[in-house]
Each structure stands twice: as C-alpha cells, then as structure tokens.
C-alpha cells in the first residue's frame, strides 16, 4: 500500500534550485541529510513508494554519459510518485544542432516541474536556471560541482560515524578535474571535518588551500591520520595533456591496495564515487573488502536524491 504523504511540515528549505554545495549553509546541508535519513527509516519499514510528488514531472536531462546518477535520480523520482522523462543527448535533437537551452525549453514545455541536468560544461545548470521556470538540480556540471554525490558521500560517512565534526577525510586523486572533490570540500568543511587533498602535484590546483584544505603529495604519509579515504576517479576523458607519466606510476603512488591499507587506521572507511578504474584507484580486494562502503554510497544516493527532489518540490508547492 502506498504511504500517505508526510504532513507538509516546515522543511527549513527556501531554494528553488540545487546547483552546488558552495552556496548551501551547514543547516541546509543538514536538512537534506536528515530528510534522507527519514526516507531511509521509512524504507526500512517497508514504505518505499511515497506519494509526495504525485502529479509532478521530473525531467532527467543527461548531456553526458552516466549510469549510476541517471538511474538513481530516475528511481528517486519514481519512489516519490513523480512522472519522469529521461533524456540523453545521444540520438536527440542536440545532435541535429539544436542548442542546449532550446532542447531544455522544449522538454520543459511538457509541464516539467523539475529538471535534473548533467552536462560536460561547468555552469550549464546555472544557465538553465536562468532560462527555465522549473527548478534545476545539478547532477554534475563539468569539473565544477556534483552536489548530490557530495551529499551522499557525507551522508554515508555520517551514517557510519554519527557526525562529521572532528573527522579527517582524505580526497585522493585527480582533484583538478573533479566536481566530486569540489562538492565534497564545500560540504565537509561546512560540517566541521578536516580535509586533506592528496594526489600528484599536477592534479592539485595551486590555490586550493584557500578553501581551508591541506595538501599532501604523499599518500602513505597521511594514511595513518585519516578516518575516511575517498578515492576519486582519474578523469581520463577530461585531461587535455599528460598530467602524470603513466597509469602504472599513478597506481604505484596513489592506488589503494591491500598493502597500503595496512598503513591506515583499522576502521578507516573507503569511499569511491565510481565508476572506478579497478586496479588504478583501488584494487578489487580493497573495493570488496571490509573497509569499503562503496555499495552503501550507491544505496544512499537514492535517498539523498529523494530528499533533494522532495525539498525542492515542497518549496515549489508552498509557492516559493
């Protein structure tokens, strides 16, 4: 039986769009995390399908390949009883020369209330938010932000550790080209975690310490002091020139394997936003080992996206 909508409680949410974690306050982030926890609680009671967005239409516009995020958003909308439109750029009018904005406007004209957008250009969701009446959710824009990934990473850590405050989190790998890194940094710092970014010097932007993070080029040296390791994917498709000599050399210094794991705290949590290059960022024994929470991340992605959609929908329905 479908659960009845929760009372339209005051959500403390006053945003039409979710474009990034940079602009969110710690309270707003906590609101999303708490809402996701509530959806988790309902799901564990068997209330998986909720009527909270019945009658609304969510369009998933993916102008860049994605499996996990696209299916996660699609299922999240369905769990909230929204109708969904899934659009991917391949085979669409975009390949016939229609502009990005025109495509989005045409889809919006089908009565869409929220647009979830993934795009290879940083700022594409911001551009849409200025041209559409619908609420816009950023599902990853270029190398800028990926707010729901940042939120689900933080949610997963909070689930295991209760709080973010006082924890040390290492973001390892290609920081320069990583939207996941940027969203993680904003969210983690706002919630009181200590953040170390670690990777080859060519993949760490020089100004990043201004965001309040520490920089290390030596993974082995920092491993003993971190509570969480988040292994970012090497963005082969975003690199325009050689940033490191070889994959083998990268894996030698920054790949997580069984040997290296011994240098870490016993209860260290291993996260990876995926899709992982097995054998590069981490070896299968670690990916599938006891410290890994990679599959939790995928599960949590669903409730985080439900929470984001729900909060934006509440804002819309209360005339925000």
């Amino acid at each position: 039986m479908m659960a009845q909508p929760a009372p339209a409680a005051r959500t403390g949410w006053s945003r039409k769009h979710l474009l990034g974690l940079e602009e969110l306050s710690a309270d707003e982030i906590t609101t999303i995390l708490d809402q996701a926890a509530e959806f988790n609680r309902l799901a564990s009671k068997g209330e998986k399908k909720l009527g909270l967005m019945s009658g609304s239409v969510v369009a998933n516009l993916f102008f860049e390949p994605s499996t996990r995020t696209r299916t996660s958003f699609s299922l999240a909308a369905k769990r909230l009883s929204a109708d969904t439109i899934d659009f991917t750029a391949a085979g669409s009018s975009v390949s016939k020369g229609e502009s990005f904005i025109d495509t989005a406007r045409n889809i919006e004209a089908m009565g869409v209330s929220h647009v979830v957008v993934r795009h290879s250009s940083a700022g594409a969701p911001h551009l849409l938010s200025r041209h559409l009446k619908a609420g816009v959710l950023n599902a990853g824009d270029g190398t800028h932000e990926h707010p729901t990934q940042g939120l689900l990473d933080i949610f997963t850590i909070r689930e295991h550790r209760g709080t973010l405050s006082g924890l040390t989190v290492a973001l390892v790998g290609d920081i320069l080209h990583s939207r996941v890194a940027r969203s993680n940094i904003w969210g983690l710092k706002k919630l009181g975690a200590r953040v170390i970014v670690c990777g080859p010097s060519t993949l760490i932007p020089p100004d990043i310490t201004k965001l309040g993070v520490e920089v290390s080029y030596d993974f082995d040296e920092i491993l003993g002091q971190v509570d969480i390791v988040n292994l970012l994917r090497i963005q082969f498709e975003r690199q325009r020139s050689a940033f490191f000599p070889s994959i083998r050399e990268y894996a030698h210094f920054y790949g997580m394997n069984g040997e290296r794991l011994k240098l870490a705290k016993k209860d260290v949590l291993i996260l990876a936003p995926g899709p992982i290059n097995r054998g590069v960022e981490l070896t299968p024994d670690v990916a599938d080992g006891n410290n890994s929470v990679i599959l939790d991340q995928v599960t949590n992605g669903l409730v985080i996206r439900m929470a984001c959609l729900y909060l934006l929908e509440q804002h819309r329905r209360t005339g925000g």
């Binding site: 824009d141 270029g142 190398t143 800028h144 940027r182 100004d207 990043i208 325009r240």
Partner: peptide
Amino acid sequence: VAGGVMHEGHWSMVLGL
C-alpha cells in the same frame, strides 16, 4: 591557454573552469 575559459586562479579552481 588551450581550452581555457577564464583567468587561472582562485575562481577558476572554485568554478571548475
């Protein structure tokens, strides 16, 4: 400057441009 969009510095790092 190949592929560049803006001045390289604090804001390009934040904006991922």
